[in-house]
Design a protein around this nucleic acid. Structure first.
Lengths: 173, 173
DNA sequence: ATTATCTATAGATCTATAGATAATGC
DNA sequence: ATTATCTATAGATCTATAGATAATGC
């Protein structure tokens, strides 16, 4: 995974990520990426075939980092489902634009590192005792809570901690 | 609600909706909307101040129609939470681009018809016996299932009916 | 030699405004 | 008169390619 890209390509992805996280997807263009590196936009095409390839790398970063966050939560003292949920929510809310970019479009499965999709899903699956249906339902709940919060869909006075607790209590009594 | 817009404005929204549902958000431009009506794009600005105002109307349509679908499900024989969930999923999957447009951005609360947000939330809140936390958790679960399905995030062989059942059983035993 | 960069540019679009013209309604 | 439309256009962008030039590595 660290050798998927040349060093220069990694710098390009890093610049893209800073832009995305700071200012959102609408400012993420080949020109703004190049500007941040002090080069011209056409030079980027020596490192990536097109813009989509850069976005795929951002998606891979999100999946890998959220997998790491979940693995860390699973490995801690408690390792409870509450801890996993907290880790998921914390990661997503710390990187809302990245989370949405990686999540609100089809997974570019063939372009991602082998095994990454499964790795990202594994901690939750384990915590569900291998019950895939329960793991998917819990994932949907967590994803729904996170994206609805990111997009400001809950009423301003909603107690989201309470909603998380209520959902987790039901799914994992 | 039927008098929010002039007849011509309603035709514009209808054309926008057809485009969106047929071809997705990337083709929804002022020019394509105008083309579909046989007029030129600048003429649209006599009916809407800007493109965003058209999108707000599409969002209002989605909220109103999904509210209707949920109200109908609540009023039927069973009126169970399963029926509500089925209605929600069916509506969203029948209108994936509209559902995402209306859902994957902040709610334009001040521009929407008064009471629409509450109305859309009410059937589920009722079915939860007024428990707002449970209603929000259930909404997040349903929204998560739907958007993950729309965006092709579940493995191709995932049994989504089973995941829905499992989640609903937990949330509403 | 190869690689990274640059300049120049093709080829598309987009949103939105200004001002003229035609059609409609009192 | 008012309203809807049109033409013309401003003013921004975007992605991506072609071909030249400079710098690096054998």
């Amino acid at each position: 995974m660290t050798d998927r890209l040349t060093p220069r390509a990694r710098e390009i992805v890093a610049a893209a990520r800073e832009l995305l996280e700071e200012s959102g997807p609408s400012v993420l263009t080949m020109r703004t990426i190049a500007d941040r590196l002090g080069i011209k936009a056409p030079s980027l095409y020596k490192h990536f075939p097109d813009k989509h390839a850069v976005e795929v790398e951002l998606t891979a970063q999100m999946l890998e980092e959220s997998a790491e966050a979940l693995e860390a939560a699973a490995g801690e003292s408690s390792g409870s489902l509450d801890a996993l949920a907290r880790a998921y929510r914390t990661y997503a809310l710390a990187h809302p634009h990245l989370y949405c970019l990686a999540t609100e479009r089809p997974l570019p499965r063939t372009a991602l590192p082998a095994g990454l999709e499964d790795r990202a899903a594994l901690p939750l699956l384990r915590a569900c005792g291998g019950d895939r249906d329960l793991a998917r339902a819990t994932w949907a709940f967590a994803h729904g809570m996170v994206v609805l919060e990111i997009h400001g869909r809950f009423p301003a006075d909603a107690d989201l901690d309470a909603a998380w607790k209520r959902g987790l209590k039901a799914l994992h009594p």
